[in-house]
């Protein structure tokens, strides 16, 4: 479903992504981990072209992402994204945040979009907040709204860019729970996170990155119990309390 082939990206002199080869199947949950500045977020943001690549080929849903003829808006409809800082629209109610794209992109009627929005708000556990503004919600609630907003477009892929990094520790759980249930339902997910517990429990595959390269890939039990690369061992040992 997502195919990186020999992807490279430079920011001026800085080589952010080096020879990335990564293939993600439909329904797979891939968790990308690694130290800060290793290119995890950049990798994720290439998938919906929030970042462009310097060379290589990236195919998502049988569409070449960086092709000139690609209708990027059409591709993005199928890819939901959740950001570290939620990026909810502060001037709109929770409900309007969720219905905007279904109405303006898919041409849904207000009542239809509202029904879908309420369905997903219920799913993330806060249907009572529909009429609130984002500023009236806790961080965890805001992030759950952001997930509902992404889901309302009924995407085939969900991208999570450090979704719990900006949250108070006590709110991390509620967001991870929503992500876990999503994973169980078979959503294709790519998550950049520092939550190793989540990665171990939910991921089908772990991708470990350092200095723009994928150093190691594997199923969680193997990766966490028996990492092959020295750099991965180092990284894990620093995390292990």
């Amino acid at each position: 479903m997502i195919h990186f082939s020999q992807i490279n990206k430079h920011y001026g002199q800085f080589h952010v992504l080096r020879d990335i080869d990564l293939h993600i199947k439909s329904g797979e949950v891939v968790v990308v981990i690694g130290p800060s500045g290793s290119g995890k977020s950049t990798l994720l943001r290439c998938i919906n072209r929030l970042e462009t690549v310097t060379d290589g080929e990236l195919v998502v849903n049988d569409t070449k992402v960086n092709d000139k003829s690609t209708d990027i808006n059409k591709l993005r409809r199928n890819i939901g994204m959740v950001f570290q800082h939620f990026n909810l629209y502060p001037h709109m109610t929770v409900l309007d945040n969720i219905t905007l794209a279904p109405m303006k992109v898919n041409g849904m009627s207000n009542s239809e979009a509202t029904e879908i929005a309420m369905h997903y708000l219920t799913k993330v556990g806060i249907p009572d907040k529909a009429k609130s503004f984002p500023s009236q919600l806790s961080g965890g609630q805001q992030q759950r709204v952001a997930i509902a907003r992404g889901l309302a477009m009924k995407p085939q892929i969900m991208l999570f860019d450090e979704p719990t990094s900006a949250l108070d520790p006590e709110m991390v759980g509620e967001v991870l729970d929503v992500m876990k249930s999503l994973a169980k339902e078979g959503m294709t997910m790519v998550c950049v996170t520092h939550e190793m517990g989540f990665a171990r429990e939910v991921a089908d595959r772990i991708v470990f990155m350092d200095q723009g390269q994928i150093l190691e890939e594997g199923i969680p039990s193997e990766f966490f119990n028996n990492p092959q690369e020295e750099r991965a061992r180092q990284f894990l040992s620093r995390l292990n309390h």
Binding site: L50, R76, R77, F83, H85, N87, P90, A101, V105
Partner: peptide, 24 residues
């Protein structure tokens, strides 16, 4: 992040400007 949120949901640049950026 507001432009990124709008664009990543499939809204065009002009739609994102109109509904997300300009009202703020």
């Amino acid at each position: 992040g507001q432009m990124e949120a709008g664009r990543s949901s499939g809204l065009t640049y002009i739609q994102t400007m109109r509904y997300v950026i300009l009202p703020q």
